[in-house]
Design a protein around this nucleic acid. Structure first.
Lengths: 335, 335
DNA sequence: CTGTTAGCGCGTTCAC
DNA sequence: GTGAACGCGCTAACAG
């Protein structure tokens, strides 16, 4: 008999109050600990909740409280191993603060980002935009909506929005220094997604390294191992003695291709990764790369967002340092 | 002046109606296309929406319509490359049906799953439980709440819940057949997470292979490359000539360890992966494994869920076949 | 300490 | 075709 309305008719706070012989308000108080309630009544409410199988309706709570209890996260690509660790850290912080996490991915398509973010905006208390690829003006428009929002891995000069990012410029510079000291003069860069701010930073740093005698050829590649493999030969054609890559995936793809071509690394060619994605199954890392603890990045970003949502207008972009990890894929220049 | 209330005071449907000189009801009608509206009025409404920057409140819509427009997805581990492709496919289907996707991960901790799902239940129209690790009775309790719900990669006998899964048993059997035909008799299995149904299926199939003369030693490992590396030696100690693994990550970890130990694959030892995670950066797969298109799995699961949410009580568990991919890590038995 | 009242923002009857 | 009124389920302010 009570099953007959199982699907459509949810049990409400009024039902619980009815069953416990108290008003809906009291039920609310018991459930949220908003005010002191007589122990006997509280007990009756708890019991009613249990027997009826009551679960508060999130939409109704959101409407009444003016908060959703949810934070939204946008990432370009869930398959990129760069993001899971960030998401894990963010989820942990969010849960610790009683928030759910809504994740959306743009599939590396900058065009859909604004729409996705608009969607998140309508159902979240705060937003975390990870490596957003969208244009500056689109970003500015979203920022203007004045919702708590944190940018991760993107700094937009002149835009007043809290941001936390990694010092990709510095990381790239340390790579360049390492290579220069090994005698390299001709470097190829297997470039990542065009709209990626992080990619731009790497390129800026590489070009600045010209001051130290480094000649850089930028070769469009992408963000995956396949992209790296496909672009690998062009680095050779460019006469480079060292190859810097957008990330470790691209580096692994390139390394595989060089193995195929019989090009020995690092004696004939040096290869440097980026991001320390831990793709060496051997357990001991072999790829020279630059690192930054991603869980830290995610944690700090989430904490910043939580702080924003409770009021404090903390708006100075933060840049986390990278660390050069020298392993076995870099060596003295061949010529 | 209008900025003074930017944070707290959102623009509502009433504001729009006011600005356009129509009733809130009319605004709702033009926005949802619920009924025919005079073109002139509609135009005024559109304009007002644009200039005021109106965005409907998802919670209010949800409350009024009794739907959230969101589907929830639970996964054990976002860092496991098995899930991103599923999530991508699910997101695509969901978006095509006008639904948002809320993702939660349990971090391979079965204990938190019920709580996470309860949370999803309160704010989603339908649920997709991917490889849930929780106990049967907990699952039964959730199913009893009678929400549209689809189980992915878990079949619970005797529980009436729509499910779509992969034929891990069959996949494992084809591995066993392959190994048997190569003359292997002693096989070690590097086992995955204990609470994983998929892991149980693999073990069942391996034990059934005893009928064909295969002796199997089950060695607890885990789901990561590190786990595989750590457990690799025990397979040798067990006297196995072939090692079957929980997944390709475990296999890669084991392979790396064998390389270190100077054990040649496949002449001295055969190694088989699982899931075809495409971890061979070389571009051409080298690991023998079994595969099932994960985007297909995700797509079908999401479509099933969408169907459930619109009514049809489709409740026959579906099992998708796996395909054996023979590459370079398996060969004739050493002895 | 508790019940009653009044909204939160929207969709949807119902009359006009 | 359009507006006014009501209710979705819950919390917060107000009385008692």
């Amino acid at each position: 008999m009570r099953q007959s309305r199982a699907r459509t008719q949810r049990v409400t706070i009024t039902d619980v109050g009815h069953a416990a012989g108290v008003s809906p308000a009291t039920v609310s108080r018991v459930l949220n600990g908003t005010a002191k309630v007589d122990a006997v009544l509280a007990g009756r409410v708890q019991a009613a909740v249990r027997t009826l199988g009551y679960h508060p309706n999130a939409a109704a709570q959101g409407l009444a409280k003016g908060r959703w209890g949810t934070i939204g996260v946008l990432v370009p690509d869930l398959a990129n191993p760069y993001f899971p660790e960030i998401l894990k850290a963010v989820s942990a912080v969010a849960r610790a603060n009683g928030h759910r996490v809504m994740i959306m991915e743009s599939e590396e398509n900058p065009a859909v980002e604004p729409e996705l973010v608009a969607d998140l905006l309508r159902s979240c208390d705060g937003l975390l935009l990870c490596s957003p690829r969208m244009r500056r003006d689109q970003l500015a428009e979203l920022v203007a909506r004045a919702h708590p929002m944190v940018l991760v891995n993107r700094i937009v000069p002149g835009l007043a929005v809290p941001a936390i990012s990694v010092d990709f410029y510095g990381g790239t510079t340390s790579i360049c220094g390492h290579l220069a000291q090994l005698g390299h003069r001709d470097v190829a860069y297997l470039s990542g997604p065009e709209a990626s701010w992080a990619n731009g930073e790497r390129i800026r740093a590489l070009e600045a390294a010209a001051a130290f005698g480094l000649r850089v050829t930028v070769i469009p590649a992408g963000a995956t191992a396949a992209d790296g493999g496909a672009a690998a030969e062009q680095a050779l054609a460019a006469g480079a003695t060292a190859v810097v890559t957008y990330n470790d995936l691209v580096a692994q793809g390139a390394l595989a291709r060089y193995r195929q071509l019989g090009v020995d690394v690092p004696t004939e060619l040096s290869v440097v990764g980026f991001d320390n994605l831990s793709l060496d199954w051997s357990g001991q890392a072999t790829l020279t790369t630059v690192a930054m603890p991603r869980d830290d990045l995610g944690r700090q970003a989430a904490e910043l967002l939580e702080r924003l949502m409770t009021g404090s207008p903390d708006t100075e972009p933060k840049l986390l340092p990278m660390e050069l990890l020298i392993h076995e894929t870099t060596g003295p220049a061949a010529r």
